[in-house]
Amino acid sequence: MSHPVYLDCQSVRKSYGRKVVLEDCGFVVESGEVVALVGANGSGKTTLLRCLLGFSRPDTGQVRLNQHLGYCPQDNYLDRRLTVSEHFDLAAAILQRTWDVSAAWCTSLIERFQLGAHLLTLIGNLSAGTYQKVKFVTSVLHRPELLLCDEPCDGFDWAMYEMYWSLIGELRASGAAILMITHIAYERDRFGRILTLREGRVHEG
């Protein structure tokens, strides 16, 4: 039985001037899959991600993705002058415009990622690991069907790393598709598939 395709990237090409970064990139991610996209520094992972998300327009090719989307970027984009609680309240209010954001789910995320003690802390005063947790939790507040993460585990201690994978397993079991972009895929058996971006093309394995 085939699963619905949540991310479909077809023949994407992207160049900057004469430099071709992506050449005929194509892959799909189906519901219930956890896929790693790996590649060396400068291989074009971030460019591909930008094309997938619509931040950057590919020269040619097509991207189709599930609109119920969560995204955890690598950049430290959070507003340093808000508290964690203010940030979550605002993020939930924004997401609630379009999606169902359950209070019980948000509370469970905060508990599981041990963020309760940091709710009144200014984001600018968080440790790197806690900052990363806030970023990741933000991307799953609305239980997305498609989750794109760029180096999501940076700064996690082992307990948090395990918690992260337990949550990913839960999302996967509920039918979500997850694409994780990373330099190196540790513990390859955690992923259903591994895609490698090399010389501008996506290769299986």
């Binding site: 998300l53 950049d75 984009y77 507003d79 605002l90 993020a91 997401l95 415009r97 379009t98 999606w99």
Partner: peptide, 11 residues
């Protein structure tokens, strides 16, 4: 960038 991300999320 924070507000850009907010727009991405649906703001």
């Amino acid at each position: 960038d924070y507000w850009r991300h907010g727009v991405f999320m649906g703001l």
